[in-house]
């Protein structure tokens, strides 16, 4: 070998960035800690014994217990009812608001755009307190109806935020084309605009159903004594002595909401549109 030749430099492979070991380690720990608590609940829902810390064999007894617990079943029914009504109410009001908001360029539009943002930055406890005071002030008896109203109030903003960007992205000429072809404004809305928004509307409906079903704080402040929404029951149960039944209920709720959120993410794809994640990052 020729001693005067410069030593060959180790070639840096371009485009291949070094793996950030630290960041990846943190991410792995993060995912473990994110899912472990959920896994614990699921695991102990199948525990054969009453213990909440030691797993002693598989059984479905806590699920059985749940399905024989008329109070919990009543709560489940109420939660489903509240979620359904809140979903329908907030989707109807929220979609209309999103449509009006984007097209309404006057003072009303500006005001509406402002007040629909406020709930998103208000902690639920404040909304809860405010709703409670309003219902008491109006002399209304707290029951599932008051929970529905509070949940609708809280959900309208979500629907509007999700729909607003979709409405803004619509080509206004399409609606004009419908009117050009003889449709009235309402017909154009019904026959052309709403079908174009359908994926986003369905996705936000499913999302709202899941959010309301899981919501605790608002329901806690606005519910009457009997029946109470499932989340409120779970709260009392955890706070005042845990029964393993809670694990079973919790597991069922997890399964339900994960299915729903998966559905919400998948809906736009079912319609052949791109992405679904922006549904969430839009918040």
């Amino acid at each position: 070998m020729n001693p005067t030749a410069p030593p060959p430099r180790p070639r840096r492979r371009r485009g291949q960035r070094r793996r950030p070991v630290f960041a990846i380690a943190v991410t792995v720990v993060f995912f473990v800690l994110l899912y472990l608590p959920i896994a614990m609940v699921v695991l102990f829902s199948f525990n054969a014994q009453k213990s909440l810390t030691i797993f002693k064999g598989f059984s479905l007894r806590w699920y059985e217990a749940f399905f024989h617990d008329s109070v919990l079943l009543g709560s489940l029914g109420m939660s489903l009812e509240v979620s359904l009504v809140a979903m329908l109410g907030s989707v109807v009001l929220g979609v209309a608001l999103a449509l009006g908001l984007v097209r309404n360029k006057g003072r009303l539009g500006a005001y509406a755009g402002l007040i629909m943002m406020v709930p998103l930055i208000t902690p639920e406890i404040v909304t809860g307190v405010a709703s409670l005071l309003l219902f008491k002030g109006l002399g209304v008896t707290l029951n599932s109806g008051t929970v529905m109203i509070a949940e609708i109030t809280f959900s309208i903003s979500y629907v509007t935020v999700i729909l607003r960007s979709r409405v803004a992205a619509l080509n206004p000429e399409v609606e004009e084309a419908a009117m050009d072809l003889g449709a009235t404004r309402w017909q154009a809305l019904r026959l052309v605009t709403l079908p174009a928004l359908l994926p986003a509307i369905l996705a936000s409906a499913v999302l709202i159903f899941a959010l309301v079903f899981d919501d605790f704080v608002l329901a806690y402040f606005t519910t009457g004594v009997d029946p109470q929404p499932l989340a409120v029951r779970i709260y009392s149960a955890i706070r005042f002595g845990v029964e393993p039944t809670i694990n079973a209920v919790g597991t069922l709720m997890l399964a339900g909401s994960i299915t729903l959120i998966g559905l919400a993410l998948a809906i736009p794809r079912l319609f052949g549109r791109r992405g679904g994640l922006d549904l969430i990052s839009g918040e």
Partner: peptide, 28 residues
């Protein structure tokens, strides 16, 4: 309003109804 005028428009963006077939677009 546009729907009461005996006039039709071909829009620059075409403004087709994406959720309808070609035939349904034309039949609208």
């Amino acid at each position: 309003p546009p729907n009461k005028r005996n006039v039709n428009t071909v829009f620059q963006s075409y403004a087709l109804f994406d959720h309808l077939s070609v035939a349904d677009n034309i039949a609208f």
